[in-house]
Design a protein around this nucleic acid. Structure first.
Lengths: 343, 343
DNA sequence: CAAAACTTGTAGAACGATATACGTAGAACG
DNA sequence: CGTTCTACGTATATCGTTCTACAAGTTTTG
């Protein structure tokens, strides 16, 4: 008598016995591999669903794919990432892939640790939003597994794909909009980073901002501030900025999240928006639409970004090794926070 | 000549050779297992760091632990979950465990699929926030792997741990606070669920609300509404509610997130807060502090909840099988949205 | 001082998939 | 009709750990 399975687990072997075929055949069906007839395929499929078989991801990870994708975000508080994530899920809905999230808290060290953890867990690919790592580290990661970056402007020769909106254009749209509405002392409130890189979206936005200011003849009013790590510190910077002698009459914030803080400080200081101060954000998140914010913002369609990123990643896992870079055109959504001035 | 390792990967075998000990010994060091001398331990540790060895999680998953915990949240938009997550990370900082997130979008089907995926991937344990599954499904999951629930009031005989705040008390605090401030027509805006269970936090809050209303002699003013799935639909409900003949003079929302929508609708309708309408939320998230919201809320210290959940989960993985239930006392944080009425 | 108990280490069988190498038909070809 | 293809299946080594069973050495016990 053959040695009977002791464990209760339903493995590929159980399925093979049930269907009366070899283990290898079942594996082929599982992977949609070449060399199985339609008859055998349906027979095996039937056995699998009858037994309620579920492939063991760890075992798969030993040899082949895990069908798990890593998704890394800097922050859980920024609702923009939620939009992107929704797009990713739409793209993967009908596939075998599952996505698991990591949150880096905008810290390079945590980001690297999470990526290591995901590589250890044999994820098939990685989507990283706004990476904080040095470019060379990104290249190293991409050499180890298929990688798509969102919100990172790659330099030529990159071995990964990117998905972006045109950040320079977005910033230009903001400045043009504000200038047309009668504002001139337009400041840019940037993200705090220890060492800015050319690849960062915020760098591009700053470049776009500076260029558009010059083009509008407002070059002498260029002012760039940095938001700090915590909410409290950022409010301090903004308060200082709004109480200074040459207070700006408009603030362009690198992301909506920060713009909400600006709105708060302005109100605390008794400044009316947009009467005394116009505020514009970036990402057009759900909070912009709330009447108490009514925040003008740049829409870069997070859903589309996520969807494209997932598509590119799956392509790359399937073998493509030519880098692709997807870019969407940003669009300004005007709301009350930047209404035209009444002179 | 012995067969040389072909692959470049640094495995437990490489370490064993380098340190001049057996594979089993290295494994013991790795797992802090019994039966290794201090000398051997340090020797192996040295080899590991010299070679830059990293354990292969998939291989671990075949036999032992994966040192990966699953963390399931209903929603990425609600910043309260971010606080909880931060607490979890603090608790796990100095351990080997890594946390990976899943987002169920408040849908039972996605929630179940994610849990299956996490079980397939051999996660060592699960933390689920505000589960939407039926109680019996929860029990089945908990039977398969160590489980801690946050925001779920277990019935006696549960085989999982829970971490909660006292939701009934929280709701009572709100009603007492509003009543003392001179409001009487206090409505409760609840979460939409297909079938409410006794285990849900929102059910407890509703019970607390009803009880406190009666205790305050306001029983005849009890009104419960349901927020719907999307932001737009919820705003519709609120608008209808605020334009009805017997409009409430205060609204208690089951979570801050919804309260912000109420503030928005009130403003659109030209109602002043708190002059015409007081608004109170739950969770005391970061958005409450923004001046444009100034939202009174119940603080249930998300950080503490997350920290305790992680602690309980690790204990359970280590073998405890007696259920434990941790409860924190909620605290009301008063802000301008519920200032006392001037008669 | 022999027997028992403990300590420290090793060998090697799992775990559940994947994928290579190969076997066996039947079809197509000259 | 023998040879070469093609299509379909199978047997089995392999991945990197964990962990049981056991061996050898050391200390304690009676």
């Amino acid at each position: 008598m053959a040695p009977v399975k002791k464990s209760g687990r339903i493995t590929i072997r159980t399925v093979a016995e049930d269907a009366g075929v070899s283990v290898a055949a079942v594996s082929k069906v599982l992977r949609d591999a070449y060399g199985v007839s339609e008859a055998l395929r349906t027979k095996v499929r039937a056995s699998m669903s009858r037994l309620g078989y579920r492939p063991h991801a760890a075992a798969r990870g030993m040899r082949g794919q895990t069908y798990t994708l890593g998704f890394l975000i800097p922050d859980m508080r920024n609702p923009f990432f939620s939009d992107i994530f929704a797009g990713v899920n739409v793209a993967l809905e009908r596939t075998q892939y599952q996505t698991l999230l990591g949150v880096s808290e905008s810290a390079t060290s945590i980001e690297m640790a999470l990526i290591e953890a995901m590589i250890d867990r044999q994820m098939d690919g990685l989507i990283v939003i706004g990476p904080r790592m040095m470019s060379q580290d990104v290249m190293q990661v991409a050499a180890r597994l298929p990688t798509v970056l969102i919100g990172h402007h790659a330099t030529p020769g990159a071995n990964f794909d990117t998905v972006n909106n045109d950040d320079r254009l977005g910033a230009e749209l903001v400045v043009q909009h504000l200038a047309a509405a009668g504002y001139s002392h337009i400041a840019y409130l940037n993200q705090q980073v220890t060492d800015a890189e050319q690849t960062m979206v915020t760098t591009h936005r700053e470049i776009g901002y500076r260029q558009a200011m010059k083009d509008a003849g407002l070059g002498k009013h260029i002012q760039v501030f940095q938001a700090l790590q915590t909410s409290r510190e950022t409010q301090g910077v903004v308060r200082h900025m709004l109480q200074s002698r040459n207070r700006p009459d408009a603030i362009f914030c690198w992301t909506d999240f920060i713009a909400l803080e600006v709105l708060s400080v302005a109100r605390e200081l008794g400044l009316s928006v947009p009467g005394d101060l116009a505020v514009v954000g970036y990402d057009n998140t759900a909070y912009c639409d709330l009447a108490q914010n009514a925040l003008t913002s740049i829409d870069q369609s997070g859903q589309v970004l996520g969807l494209q990123a997932a598509r590119l990643l799956v392509e790359r896992i399937k073998g493509r090794d030519q880098a692709e870079h997807f870019v969407v055109t940003p669009r300004l959504v005007a709301r009350a926070s930047s209404s035209p001035r009444r002179p």
